[in-house]
């Protein structure tokens, strides 16, 4: 065997044997950096400043600050309406027992995903309603219902300032957006003159299913790492 091959072999053994640890360290490092919302916020703002100095976009940057403030308020106003509306509807669904029916249907899946809270009926009802809204592509409804679910999960969380494993799973399922009907995208495609606006639906299912699965698996693995 030539010296080159030996070198490669040694490198492979060194990295191969440590590969698991290596990935673990990277995850731990990332989790540490991303753990505090403080750091993320600091990062976004300081990077923006540095970039604008280099790109000469200082004027855009300063106007973007005020635009951002106005956007936040209009976002909240929008949310205020849907939040009231869906909280109201949710109250009807809860009192009439509709939530229990939905929760019962989704229970076999959700029980596995949220082992820490699966015995609390109120939490499971709220999570089920959020998941249903997501599946139907009712983005406007999913957020208020999701906030309700998170509040319920927080009720059972022993440490009120840190995120609990079930909460992580819940947020990640929402960011990955598992849905059956991508209505917004279909509408935009129709407007742009697509032959069949819905023909991408199967690809959307595949892609969002993979996203949800990988994000949930990541949560479960990293959750185990962080416990140690």
């Amino acid at each position: 065997m030539s010296i080159e091959k030996w070198k490669i072999l040694i490198i492979v053994i060194l990295f191969g044997s440590n590969w698991g640890n290596f990935v673990g360290y990277i995850f731990c490092f990332c989790s540490y950096i991303f753990n505090m919302l403080n750091y993320i916020w600091l990062f976004l703002i300081s990077i923006s400043f540095v970039c604008s100095v280099f790109n000469g976009t200082a004027a855009e940057l300063s106007s973007s600050v005020f635009e951002g403030c106005a956007d936040a308020v209009s976002l909240c106003l929008k949310l205020l309406g849907v939040m009231c509306f869906w909280s109201g509807l949710m109250n009807i669904a809860e009192k009439s027992g509709l939530c229990n029916v939905v929760a019962k249907i989704l229970r076999p899946v959700l029980k596995r995903l949220f082992p820490g809270v699966c015995n609390d009926k109120e939490v499971m009802n709220a999570i089920s309603m959020n998941v249903t809204a997501n599946l139907f592509g009712l983005g406007n409804a999913a957020t208020p219902l999701g906030i309700k679910a998170v509040k319920n999960i927080q009720r059972l969380n022993p440490d009120k300032t840190s995120v609990s494993p079930d909460m992580m799973t819940f947020v990640v399922i929402n960011t990955a957006a598992l849905k059956i009907i991508p209505s917004t995208v279909a509408a935009l495609r129709e407007a742009a003159g697509a032959q069949n606006p819905m023909d991408i639906i199967f690809c959307v299912w595949i892609s969002s299913a993979f996203a949800v699965i990988s994000a949930v698996v990541a949560v479960k693995i990293i959750g185990r790492f962080m416990k140690k």
Binding site: F34, K160, V172
Partner: peptide, 13 residues
């Protein structure tokens, strides 16, 4: 819900 430490949420998402 006033969570300050986001744990692994953002990397996983």
């Amino acid at each position: 819900v006033g969570i300050k430490k986001s744990g692994a949420v953002i990397p996983c998402a």
